[in-house]
């Protein structure tokens, strides 16, 4: 078996591992679902969100999903916030803290 993020089962043997303990394939953190670590979870309100993307920049786990949307007024593409990847969000609450108070699009609630 060759080593890839996809087959990183946690059971690889000495001969199957790459030399020097390196990771030869990117994207392994996608495999590691950390979403169930949280005690509080962020709830994002798409109606209130102004897509300033402060939360996107601050999120330590890159959990904010975005989408490019054509702005008919300017003719350019805007980047829109499309919510949170809860499979990987650890519930740190940074996003809620940095969301502008006037907007308050993210609130922390008890995790399900």
């Amino acid at each position: 078996m060759t080593f890839t993020a996809g087959n990183y089962t946690g059971k690889l043997t000495v001969t199957e591992l790459p030399e020097g303990g390196i990771w030869t394939e990117p994207g392994s953190s996608l495999m590691r679902k950390t979403g169930d670590w949280k005690t509080l979870q962020p709830v994002w309100d798409g109606q209130k969100c102004i897509s300033c993307l402060t939360c996107w920049a601050y999120c330590p786990d890159s959990c904010f999903k975005t989408e490019k949307v054509l702005n008919e007024k300017t003719g350019k593409e805007d980047v829109k916030n499309r919510g949170i990847d809860l499979d990987h969000c650890k519930g740190c609450g940074i996003c809620a803290a940095v969301c502008p108070p006037k907007v308050a699009a993210i609130t922390m609630e008890k995790a399900r």
């Binding site: 020097g20 303990g21 390196i22 990771w23 990117p26």
Partner: peptide, 13 residues
């Protein structure tokens, strides 16, 4: 071909 060097490696590996 991005790689990770010097990552953490616990009881399992």
């Amino acid at each position: 071909k991005p790689i990770t060097v010097g990552s953490i490696d616990l009881q399992n590996y």
